[in-house]
């Protein structure tokens, strides 16, 4: 199945990265980055199907489309941020990774603000 290919390739790339790290330390991160992106693309292909199901469910449950799109955006930002931060940490740049994570958190917070406002509005309306 799919997972066998991914694991096999992952082990192979790990060995190549070790080989390259002591020979050419500047090209080794590219290897890890290339493999990470390839797996990300494969996973995103599968994610599309999951998201279609969610979209269909929200439409059937008559939930406002805004919440799902915001949720998807937050999910996307989280994925990409974690991906970038991990690659930077692999290359030994801990500070850059932290900065990327802080930026990701702020962007997610910004995206979540409308939902906070909506929740507060509902709560205020419930209070007597």
């Amino acid at each position: 199945m799919e997972i066998l290919q991914i694991v096999g390739l992952g082990l192979l790339v790990a060995v190549l990265a070790v080989l390259l790290r002591e020979e050419r330390p500047e090209i080794a991160p590219f290897l890890a980055l290339g493999f990470g992106i390839m797996i990300f693309i494969v996973i995103l292909g599968k994610m599309g199907a999951i998201i279609m199901v969610f979209r269909d469910l929200t439409r059937r449950a008559h939930i406002d489309e805004l919440y799902l799109t915001t949720l998807l955006k937050i999910l996307g930002i989280a994925y990409v941020t974690e991906f970038g931060a991990q690659i930077c940490r692999d290359a030994g740049e801990g500070t850059i990774a932290n900065k990327i994570e802080v930026a990701g958190k702020v962007l997610i917070l910004i995206l979540a603000l409308p939902i906070f406002a909506a929740i507060l509005e509902v709560i205020v309306r419930l209070l007597p």
């Binding site: 390739l9 190549l16 020979e23 090209i27 290339g34 390839m38």
Partner: peptide, 14 residues
């Protein structure tokens, strides 16, 4: 699953 890019990078590095 285009695997050739990974091997291209490794080949260039070696």
């Amino acid at each position: 699953m285009n695997v050739d890019l990974i091997f291209k990078i490794a080949g260039i590095g070696i």
